[in-house]
Amino acid sequence: MLGKTAGGLFWMFRYLERCENTARLIDAGWRIALTRLGDGDNEWESIINTAGIRDLYEQKYDNFDAAHAINFLLRDTDNPSSVLSSIGVARSNARLVRTALSAEVWEAVNEYWMTMKAALARPVSDRNLPKVLHEIRSQTAVVRGTLAGTMLRNDIYNFCRLGTFLERADNTARILDVKYYVLLPSASFVGSSMDNTQWENILRSVSAERAFGWLHGGDISAPAVADFLILDKRMPRSLAFCNEKIRGNLEHLQQDYGPRQPCQDFADAICAKFTGRHVDDVFEDGLHEFLEASIRDNTMLASHIENDFRFNG
């Protein structure tokens, strides 16, 4: 396979994952806004923070009005991570690597893009927002389903999965970090009802409120949620889960290609940071520091993979 093709697959799936995560964030913010009694738009501020696009946002707007934030996250092409930008990049990468995709996967991505281009041609009204968010989730599910159902389990598949899990790990770490960072200034919040709402919000933004409920009942506490999203290997969006998947896909590539690559050592080292770890230790050492290091590791790992498999020459 061409290095360029591997890179195209990797980025295609990173951007598809990003689309979905952005939609989840909007959904979480929207629900909170609907159920909140007080005023102020600080929920949208923290969501813009989480998406890592605050600087870009502030170049355009001087407040965190819901309509602005939603528009910016959904369809503003000045925002490279907006749903519309992301699906555009994903689809353009899919065109680039078309020869490596099954017809079903290509058509699913192409249809996703056509649907979104039409749905996001104009600002989305409050009334239509739930429908649009639902459409994003279901179109993503179709792409994921065609990938699972029609693609060979070979190197092509591995590069798709690497993109997916690197992006997802990055996203989960950011969500946790920003939330915690927002809460940090007033230590008195910890354990308060305000604090619980924030943690609930986190669970919602990764569609994990029900899974969490199964495991922990109604007991939403900071350590329980952090443990769930960082260390629980059963949870498909946790850092430990994503990193194991990355390691597994790299191993599969090694079985196929032969030589062991530097990125594998790096991935192993990352996984070691999660194994046998207790969430109390993470809090002890500082959750923020832990997450920051995790995001950094992730970026490094991506660039190792890029080099080892010659994405760019």
Binding site: M1, L2, G3, K4, Y257, F309, R310
Partner: peptide
């Protein structure tokens, strides 16, 4: 080496 070669994930 006198050939046109493409950059693949294996070299």
């Amino acid at each position: 080496d006198g050939r046109v070669a493409m950059r693949t994930t294996r070299g």
